[in-house]
Computed example of a mutant assay.
Amino acid sequence: MDSTASRVAIVTGASGGIGRAVAERLAADGVAVVVHYAGNKSRAGEVVDTITASGGQATAISGDVADEGEMAALFEQTGRLYGGVDVVVNTAGIMLLSPLADLDLADFDRMHRTNVRGTFVVSQLAARTLRPGGALVNFSTSVTRLQQPGYAAYAATKGAVEAMTLILARELRGKDVTVNAVAPGPTATPLFLEGKSEQLVGQIAALNPMERLGSPEDIAEAVSFLAGPARWINGQVLFANGGAA
């Protein structure tokens, strides 16, 4: 496949929610997008169809973000299809909530494997692969500032993501590659809204001075900025939460 796009992006966890919005926004920016998915092939296919129907370029590729072999294969396949990689966005992650004292350690291990090891594996490959002028965007969370009860284990995994992101930015001195993280606040994805009453959603929305939840498109806009024009922003965590923290 010959790409007519000048830039190429890999978006992990791109089959739904924020990941889908990011993939579609980057495609609208003229970037050829690899839509990574873990298990939902049909949803990934829908994202590809949406992008291509709008005149963009996209391919769906599956893999376990925490498996270095599968991710290396994904990067290699991307190179074969499009000639290289310019942008990597790590939206893949899981969130299992519980008070720290009650958390099943198996749930902690699951989150750590995807959120920490997965981000590390993909960041390592990005550091080795991204072309000059490239960008790596990892995902943290505004909960690292909000300190909400029940989020201790999840926030701990995202604190690790922030640490590796900020250090990697400095390790890539001289490579002309930026490394940043986006830390969304409450965002109106189906996963976030599931099981929440209208009253509770309203209370959460009122936490920020904009008095609404974020949308996946709000977060995608921040990623688009960091992935493209924001060449002088490096080694930072961008809190995209309407001013909640």
Rank of each mutant, 00 (worst) to 15 (best):
A153H: 03
S140C: 10
Y151Q: 07
G185T: 10
G133W: 12
R173K: 15
G133L: 13
T59G: 07
A240I: 11
T12E: 04
N115T: 06
L103F: 09
E68S: 12
I219T: 01
D109P: 00
F120S: 04
S3W: 14
Q236K: 07
A58I: 10
Y154M: 02
A220E: 03
S6A: 15
L166F: 08
S197D: 12
S123D: 12
R128Q: 15
A106V: 07
S98G: 05
E70L: 08
V122K: 01
R212V: 09
V182D: 10
R145H: 11
L207S: 15
L130R: 12
E46K: 09
T78W: 01
A92P: 04
S142K: 06
R173N: 13
R117S: 05
L130S: 08
A135I: 02
A227L: 06
R110Y: 02
V161S: 06
A53Q: 08
R7E: 14
N234V: 15
N234S: 10
G202R: 07
G69L: 04
T91N: 11
A227H: 07
K175P: 07
L207K: 13
A244E: 14
A244N: 09
A240C: 09
A230H: 10
Y37L: 00
A183V: 00
A38N: 05
T144P: 00
E68P: 00
V11G: 04
G159W: 10
D67P: 00
Y37A: 00
G17R: 03
S3H: 15
G243P: 06
A152F: 06
M210Y: 10
A188K: 13
R43Y: 07
G235C: 11
A240G: 06
A53K: 08
S6R: 15
R212Y: 04
V161W: 05
S3N: 13
V116D: 03
L81P: 03
G185D: 14
A58M: 04
Q147E: 14
D109C: 00
A27D: 13
L200M: 10
D2K: 14
A53M: 05
A58F: 05
V161T: 09
F139I: 00
T52R: 13
Y37C: 02
G17H: 04
D64F: 01
I61M: 01
T189A: 06
M1N: 14
V223R: 11
E194Q: 15
A53C: 02
P209Q: 02
V11F: 06
